[in-house]
């Protein structure tokens, strides 16, 4: 099979991937309507304002939903968990769940999660989540 998909940053998302490389999870916030948002773009998707900033997220969140993928996937050994984490800041991200077995008995919705970073290449580190200590 093909190799694992590696993200290609765009000018609009470069800050996000620069952040993950430094061990920082960055989201964005609107200075006009004060909403946090993700994925990256240089304007607020809630109100359209271009007056936005990049902010460092706490890296803490909860398990919002998940599947346990039994299908083959390049770079993965099934079964593995694909989850959605809802950050304390209110935005949701896709993630895998590391340091916990892909077993429904071990995966309780709303369980606390914390960010970690998986180095894929010299340029790209991928945010991942694991059960909070």
């Amino acid at each position: 099979m093909a190799e694992r998909a590696i993200p290609t940053p765009t000018p609009e998302s470069q800050h996000y991937w620069d952040g993950t490389k430094q061990g920082e999870l960055r989201i964005q916030a609107c200075n006009t309507c004060e909403q946090n948002y993700f994925p990256p773009r240089p304007f607020c998707p809630k109100c359209g304002s271009r007056d936005v900033k990049v902010v460092k997220a706490s890296g803490k969140g909860k398990l919002y939903s998940y599947i346990i993928n039994h299908l083959p996937s390049p770079g993965f050994t099934p079964p593995f968990t694909v989850a959605i984490v809802e950050l304390e800041e209110g935005v949701r991200l896709m993630t895998n769940l590391l340091e916990v077995e892909p077993d429904p008995a071990k995966l309780e919705l709303d369980m606390p999660l914390e960010v970690t970073f998986e180095k894929l290449t010299d340029d790209i580190s991928l945010p991942q989540f694991k059960p909070a200590k």
């Binding site: 299908l71 390049p74 993965f76 694909v82 896709m94």
Partner: peptide, 11 residues
Amino acid sequence: TQFEQPYGVTF
């Protein structure tokens, strides 16, 4: 391609 595929979602 940036925010979902790297987590192994495909079909």
